[in-house]
Design a protein around this nucleic acid. Structure first.
Lengths: 365, 365
DNA sequence: GAGCCCGTTGGTAACGTTATCAAAATTCAC
DNA sequence: GTGAATTTTGATAACGTTACCAACGGGCTC
């Protein structure tokens, strides 16, 4: 950082005290709103403060109180609607409790996350909400050891022993895919940003690694439960890339034995899938049924409107903040996982398996 | 705020100094990375610090340096994709400069914004990025007077004398609507969240008041420039409400002399407009041409893809942060308005005015 | 009227760092 | 080997608040 000039000296409590003709401890009590003081002096001090334009120095206050009234939040990317909603939930609860929120984006990058957490510890935030990018938790342990409580959001880190606020991704996905099997579908594909290699999944950069992998597992379980053999799974790993998802679906839907139902594990996959279906001129749900994971404003824009699994994202953030605040206030309850309910939102993109599968042709671009 | 226990005492510089067998000033120099020290002592101190698990107390550091390495950001709502992108831009630049970002949502509420700014002043943030909710700037003046530079984002506050980063909303809107007039359209409607009452516009709660009003003005100017009389303006004020926009467009498009082109001043209006058009079975652009303001991921999801005016939102945030950082570093350049370029993104929702206007019928819901 | 209690007051010591400056140790030149 | 220049070192004073405690005074009881 280049040279930054020291900020101008500001009015302090001694200044106000002098101006009001009282001792500084007295002025401090009035301005800090603690201890006792007579109405007369209170008035004098307040008047002097107003006259001089005094404003509390929260840094000095934090210095001695040990509290910064600040929460650190680490998410992958605020620009992602999911995290934006979660952050909003956190800030709402925090603001009500008189806490401010410092934001850091990890971009699903472990080292970036670690650096952010380290910085938060140094800044002495009162607590930390983290949507972890990787499975290691040394940095989080360090935070807790330094007296900074941590609550995990959206993703579980096994063995971390931390409060965690999540959604039942696997169960929700299974239930969604079960709608397909119940409706007679047998060729059901999934389009996902989850990594094909489950071992590296937790380490790889990219979005929503953990949650999408869980949703993929839910898909598998649903097929299994419906007696569909493992060989009949139709999985397309497209990364966190809309165009890739589109071309994968294009290819998938033009194949000999194309699926009659599509499940997407995340919004980017959904967007790419709809791109493909729209370009193919596929009739939804007559040709294909579609269910997406996570609701979005555009889910009701496409016709037919898209059926989705919706998650209470803001609520996730709010709950995380709630739990965190309780910890800051000294709760020593055993950390546990809080699983919030998802909801299947039936709209018009799902129907029974077609009796006859119409052949689709790639658009002549 | 309920009783919060004091955090545990942590390892400090004197602790490290004692453990390393050096004076605390020496330890401080090594750990703080300033002054000079021999390789031997440096090593000893660092070893002692690692052993004890020392971590810098940034609060104490701020106390004396007067810098918090923190930027305050006030936007209407991070959950809004526009602000999420802008915030991302700010945080990116800030992070690179070693600054953290504290986030506050004003919900377009003046008092909330003022409270947030006041809190930021007390916390001694190094600078402030504000997307102002109202036209008054007393609180912003106070910030500047206290030595906290302020940069305005997205909206102009006349008379504030502050650096401001915006887009030419009026010009961009005018240029967009001019596309319609150039293509022979004469019945051109606008759907907007702008308040119908321009006087109260800057005071009323609701989103994007100022910018949408500017865009509305641009619409008017374009019509004027094309020689379309004032009486032929078709303006629908629908507030920041998708359903209201939808019904307004439904009514508009089923009227006797319906428009052949629609301009929307913001994403919510666009969403509602498309809802209506889709439900009406309107053929775009054969029946109606549409241009939306501000690009979104779903603009390329609808078929035909939506032509839009796109704004460099992230760049807006980045530039605001850049300017702010320069101010923090002591720039005394005269505050000015920075207007970023918008781009008209032609897609498939615009075409020539139809020779014969097909009658549209309300869907039998 | 003496003794006591309690609300009020102000001096001073924290909090944990960086800044200042003089003393001590080292290096360098001749 | 000496003196001067330079580096390294540590004691101590900030920064602006809250915490602590002793002192003060007025009103009350007996």
């Amino acid at each position: 950082m280049p040279n930054a000039p020291r900020p101008p000296r500001r009015v302090t409590i001694p200044d106000v005290a002098r101006h009001a003709g009282v001792g500084q401890a007295t002025a401090a009590r009035v301005l800090g709103g603690y201890g006792s003081s007579s109405a007369a002096t209170r008035e004098r001090v307040l008047a002097a403060a107003a006259e001089l334009g005094y404003s509390t120095n929260a840094v000095a206050r934090s210095m001695i109180s040990g509290r910064t009234h600040t929460l650190g939040v680490v998410v992958a990317d605020v620009e992602n609607a999911y995290f934006a909603r979660a952050v909003r939930g956190v800030t709402d609860v925090a603001a009500r409790a008189g806490l401010q929120v410092v934001l850091a984006n990890s971009d699903e990058n472990g080292p970036t996350e670690r650096a952010a957490v380290q910085m938060f510890i140094e800044r002495r935030v009162d607590g930390l909400v983290v949507a972890p990018a990787a499975a290691d938790h040394e940095h989080l342990d360090k935070a807790v050891a330094s007296g900074v409580p941590v609550v995990l959001l959206d993703r579980v880190v096994s063995g971390a022993g931390l409060d965690t606020v999540v959604v039942d991704n696997r169960g929700a996905a299974q239930a969604a895919v079960a709608r397909f099997t119940d409706a007679g579908h047998t060729r059901i594909a999934v389009v996902t940003s989850a990594s094909p290699d489950e071992n590296t999944a937790r380490l790889a950069p990219g979005a929503d690694i953990w949650t999408t992998t869980e949703r993929l597992t839910g898909y598998r379980q649903a097929l299994r439960a419906a007696g569909i053999p493992r060989g009949a799974e139709l999985i397309r790993h497209t990364g966190y890339d809309r165009a890739l998802a589109r071309s994968a679906v294009l290819e998938l839907m033009c194949a000999e034995h194309r699926p009659t139902a599509l499940f997407t594990t995340d919004n980017v996959a959904t967007l790419g899938t709809l791109d493909a279906l729209l370009d193919l001129g596929a009739r939804i749900p007559d040709d294909v049924s579609v269910i997406g994971f996570d609701d979005a404003e555009w889910a009701t824009l496409v016709r037919p409107r898209l059926s989705v699994v919706s998650q209470p994202v803001q609520e996730l953030g709010r709950l995380a903040a709630d739990i965190l605040i309780r910890r800051i206030e000294g709760s020593t309850a055993r950390p546990r996982r809080h699983t919030l309910r998802t909801a299947y939102v039936p709209r018009e993109s799902t129907g029974p398996a077609p009796a006859r599968v119409r052949r689709l042709r790639a658009p002549g671009e």
